[in-house]
């Protein structure tokens, strides 16, 4: 079981949380202009990274707030926990910011209180896939 450090409540068992899938997937800016292919990308395609993966979690039986986590999908090591609406705190996140593909608008569920913090050893930033602007929010399983 994962031991997850909620930014508001501290370390709690994974059973208190709900998984939200890939992070940094903003709603399309101009939905009416999307092609079927782009809608497919937004609705059904998510990164399926082997390695450092930015994902959303909800502390559903605690503070009921969403937050982002950088977690290795092979070792399951939690590398960083950071607020929604802020870029992922590793190389891939920098890349995303520089290319301007991620929405930096604060999420409506963001508490905005927790600063990006690294709880793991090192952030490898092995993922080379920047978050797609057309990747979907919502259904993750």
């Amino acid at each position: 079981m994962l031991l997850i450090s909620c930014p508001n409540c501290g370390s709690r068992d994974e059973t208190e949380f709900h998984y939200g899938g890939q992070a940094h997937v903003p709603y399309p800016e101009n939905p009416n202009e999307l092609t079927d292919r782009q809608w497919a990308e937004y609705l059904f395609y998510r990164d399926n990274t082997k390695g450092a993966f930015a994902e959303r979690w909800l502390h559903s039986t605690g503070c009921r707030q969403w937050f982002n986590m950088l977690r290795d999908t092979v070792t399951y090591d939690i590398q960083a926990i950071y607020p929604m609406g802020t870029p992922r705190p590793d190389a891939a996140g920098q890349l995303t910011v520089e290319t301007g593909t991620a929405s930096l608008a604060p999420d409506s569920t963001t508490t905005g209180t927790a600063a990006p913090s690294t709880s793991g050893t090192s952030i490898s930033g092995t993922s080379t896939t920047p978050a797609s602007t057309t990747a979907p929010e919502g259904a993750t399983k």
Binding site: M1, L2, K50, E55, V74, Y76, K141
Partner: peptide
Amino acid sequence: GVDSYNGYGQRGSFH
């Protein structure tokens, strides 16, 4: 069922 999170580790959580 599956573990809720994405994973390539060939193992899951005990709960």
